[in-house]
């Protein structure tokens, strides 16, 4: 059926047949190609840098979120953890006069604590992850308001601005952090016992228990990791803006889930590669960048980007459909 399609599309379709990861990689490549053909500014080094700097944040959280999705859960408080940890790093630096690096480390640790708190209440009280993290998001957001009354903390010492604004060679530093997170997480899921167990848990929680896997402990661990990654994103954003603001991260929960799903991580758990979440985040960022570069009317932007996201998701599920069809054909022809 698809053999009759014209050539360029055919090649995309045949890549799609291989695997979800290559499929979304191909979608990203195609979008980058289109963007660079149709806008002379896309490949501008500054545009690429700010694009990559943007996607670093959603990418980082998406990588964490994909771990949770793999065990069949999710965390909707990532944005609030990020902003609360950012604010607290600001308070430590500006109000308590702590050393700035120490403050950042303390904020990271705090993210770990908040994440494990999420994990603890969800696993020990047997709560639904979605509802519980919506609740916790309220708590973290509320604490944030109590501490700041919604006001930003300004005057963050310039020595840490480099973490948000700086580049290492051509690459923005936040993105370097994202790559580090990705490498660590990939090592975790591919090479460590616990990492492999998360797929078992996501596939079949009861079977995992029968296998002697400490399901609850691993769930709490994953929530802690996600909390820490959120805190990292939060403090990098503080470094990027030079001020700690309480309103950042509002879109991070949904965008990180969208990035993971675009990247082939199943919402139902058990399947997916955290690297896919980074590609997913890149797709989202490129879409938003293209929309502005192409001069799409502001009132149309949300509709257009939503539409493109849906197309991107259908591409990864299309690859599964095509794979199945191909296998069926092979068998029939035997």
């Amino acid at each position: 059926m698809y053999e009759r399609l014209p050539n360029p599309v055919h090649s995309v379709v045949s890549t799609l047949k291989k695997s979800t990861m290559t499929a979304i990689g191909a979608v990203l490549a195609l979008m980058i190609l289109m963007a660079s053909i149709f806008s002379p500014y896309f490949l501008d080094i500054y545009n690429l840098q700010s694009l990559i700097r943007d996607l670093a944040f959603i990418g980082m959280i998406g990588i964490g979120q994909s771990l949770l999705l793999i065990i069949g859960e999710l965390d909707l408080s990532v944005g609030k953890i990020a902003s609360l940890c950012g604010i607290l790093s600001g308070i430590m630096m500006m109000h308590w006069g702590w050393n700035s690096y120490l403050s950042l480390l303390a904020a990271l640790f705090l993210g770990l604590v908040l994440g494990s708190l999420n994990g603890l209440i969800i696993s020990k009280l047997r709560l639904n992850a979605m509802v519980a993290t919506i609740g916790m998001a309220g708590v973290y957001g509320g604490v944030n308001l109590v501490l700041t009354k919604g006001k930003a903390i300004t005057g963050i010492p310039s020595e840490i601005h480099i973490f948000g604004k700086g580049n290492l060679g051509p690459l923005p530093i936040p993105f370097i952090f994202t790559l580090i997170v990705l490498v660590l997480v990939l090592f975790f899921v591919k090479k460590t016992k616990t990492g492999r167990y998360i797929y078992a848990i996501g596939n079949n929680r009861d079977a995992a228990r029968v296998l002697g896997i400490k399901v609850d402990r691993i769930r709490i661990l994953i929530y802690s990791i996600v909390g820490m990654i959120s805190a990292l994103a939060g403090i990098l954003y503080v470094a990027r803006l030079g001020s700690a603001q309480s309103a950042i991260g509002e879109n991070w929960p949904m965008n990180s889930i969208a990035a993971s799903v675009i990247g082939g991580v199943a919402l139902t758990g058990g399947i997916g590669n955290p690297a896919g979440a980074l590609i997913g985040a890149a797709i989202i960022s490129v879409i938003q960048n293209m929309i502005i570069l192409f001069g799409v009317n502001v009132y149309w932007q949300s509709a257009v980007s939503g539409f493109v996201v849906v197309i991107a998701i259908s591409f990864s599920s299309l690859s599964v459909i095509l794979q199945e069809r191909k296998q069926r054909k092979i068998k029939l022809s035997k």
């Binding site: 797929y199 078992a200 596939n203 079949n204 009861d206 079977a207 995992a208 228990r209 029968v210 296998l211 002697g212 896997i213 400490k214 199943a266 058990g270 399947i271």
Partner: peptide
């Protein structure tokens, strides 16, 4: 503590293969 049992060589192979045994999508 199923983990303790498995580590000490006590293993259970469930009747409900689908719900307690296999990891279907792996």
């Amino acid at each position: 503590d199923t983990n303790y049992s498995v580590r000490n060589g006590l293993i259970y192979l469930p009747e409900e293969r689908k719900s307690q045994g296999i990891l279907p999508m792996l």
